[in-house]
Computed example of a mutant assay.
Amino acid sequence: MVRTETAAPEPAGRTVRHVPVRAIGSVGVLRFSRLCDGGCRAVRSGSAEARAALLGPDQASVALTRSAPRRAAAPVTVPVVQLQPQQ
């Protein structure tokens, strides 16, 4: 998992997104946000700093390629992946 204070540099030429996760043992599980209407939304940020500003510096995250969060959310029927949502 990547935390803000120990974030690895982003790979050159690749767009990565920082996705919040919850640690369960040694596994990072994607964290989803619950909407007012009961639906779910996956959240991704363009940088570790943006993710920390939204969710706090202690929120664990992983750096994934741009399309990976959508592919990971699809099997659990999370239809929306939002980039840098507003607080």
Rank of each mutant, 00 (worst) to 15 (best):
R34W: 03
V62K: 00
G56T: 15
R31A: 11
R51S: 11
P9D: 02
L83H: 09
S47L: 08
R41M: 09
T15C: 08
T77V: 08
Q82M: 13
A68T: 11
Q84L: 04
A50W: 02
A12S: 04
G46V: 01
A53Y: 03
A50S: 13
A68D: 09
S61T: 13
A72C: 00
A72E: 02
A53P: 02
R3D: 00
P20I: 09
L35P: 00
P9S: 03
S61I: 09
R22N: 14
S61V: 06
C40L: 15
D58W: 13
V29E: 10
Q59S: 06
A50V: 10
A68Q: 14
S61P: 05
R51H: 14
G39A: 05
V29N: 06
A50T: 09
V80T: 11
V78R: 04
L35N: 11
R22V: 15
R34P: 03
R14F: 05
A73P: 08
G25Q: 07
Q84N: 09
A60H: 10
V29T: 08
A52T: 12
P20M: 09
A12M: 04
D58G: 13
S47D: 05
V19C: 08
P75Q: 05
A7H: 00
A42H: 06
V16Q: 03
S33L: 13
S33I: 00
R66P: 03
Q84H: 10
V80F: 11
A7C: 01
Q86H: 11
P69V: 00
A7P: 00
T15R: 11
G39P: 00
F32E: 07
V21G: 06
E5N: 12
A12Y: 02
H18L: 03
A42T: 10
Q59Y: 11
R17Y: 12
P11M: 03
L55S: 04
T4E: 15
Q82C: 12
V80S: 14
A48P: 05
P9I: 02
S45Q: 05
P75E: 00
Q86S: 14
L83D: 15
P11H: 01
A8Q: 05
D37P: 01
V2D: 09
H18M: 01
P57Q: 11
V78I: 14
V43K: 02
G28F: 06
E5F: 09
D58C: 08
R51A: 15
A52K: 08
S26V: 11
V27N: 07
L64M: 11
T65Q: 02
V76T: 07
R66A: 13
P79G: 11
L30G: 04
T15I: 06
A72P: 02
D37H: 01
A23Q: 14
R41V: 06
V43R: 15
E49N: 01
V2T: 06
A8G: 00
G25Y: 06
V27A: 07
R51G: 12
R70M: 12
T65L: 14
E5A: 06
P20H: 10
T77C: 03
L64T: 12
E49L: 13
R70I: 05
C40W: 13
S45I: 02
A53E: 12
I24A: 15
A48L: 13
R22T: 15
G38P: 02
T15P: 03
A23I: 07
V80D: 15
V78E: 04
V76E: 10
R44H: 14
S33G: 08
F32A: 14
C36E: 05
